[in-house]
Computed example of a mutant assay.
Amino acid sequence: MNAGIFFTGSGPILLLTSYASLDNPNLVDKLKTKGIKKFIAYSVPEDAVKAKYGNHYNVIMGDLKQEDDLRILDYDGHHIFNNFSLKELGDPVYHDAT
């Protein structure tokens, strides 16, 4: 399972995905159908996400298919920034559809 913070035109979102990478073409296509065509994404440790989101994480994971899927765990940028230090972020993944 991968967790990532995606910086989009409307602000950051935290999502969980069963795709192997945050730039997987199928994930990118799913994001595109949601109107997200450009983003900068950073991996965050799944165990940190579990610890910070507790039962909300478990509810979302119970809804997540084990293959080729994604769930948005948090879309409140203020909340995401309060939960994660920039030092926790992995290397950036850039996607620009233009």
Rank of each mutant, 00 (worst) to 15 (best):
Y42Q: 07
L16I: 02
F6W: 14
F6Q: 03
A41F: 08
G62D: 08
K37R: 15
D74S: 04
A97V: 09
V28M: 03
F39A: 07
L86I: 05
L27D: 00
D96L: 15
K32N: 10
Y42M: 03
Y57N: 01
V28P: 06
L15I: 00
F6Y: 12
G62W: 12
K52L: 01
N2H: 08
I72H: 01
L70Y: 13
I80S: 02
N24P: 04
V59C: 08
L86H: 06
P12K: 09
K50D: 04
K30Y: 08
G11N: 04
I60Q: 10
L70F: 14
L89H: 10
D23V: 12
L70K: 05
D68W: 00
F39D: 01
D23F: 12
D47M: 11
G62V: 05
P12R: 04
N83M: 12
M61D: 08
K50G: 08
P92E: 06
V93S: 02
H79I: 07
P25T: 12
K52I: 05
L73A: 00
I13T: 00
S85L: 10
Q66A: 11
E46V: 15
Y19F: 15
L15E: 01
V93Y: 15
M1G: 09
K38S: 09
H78V: 08
I13M: 00
H78K: 11
N24W: 13
V93M: 03
Y53K: 03
I36A: 08
G11T: 01
D63V: 11
N82A: 08
D29R: 15
I5W: 05
I13P: 01
S21A: 13
K87Y: 06
K38M: 11
F84R: 04
K50Q: 07
H95N: 03
A48F: 11
N82M: 12
N24A: 14
K65L: 11
I72K: 03
A41R: 10
G54H: 12
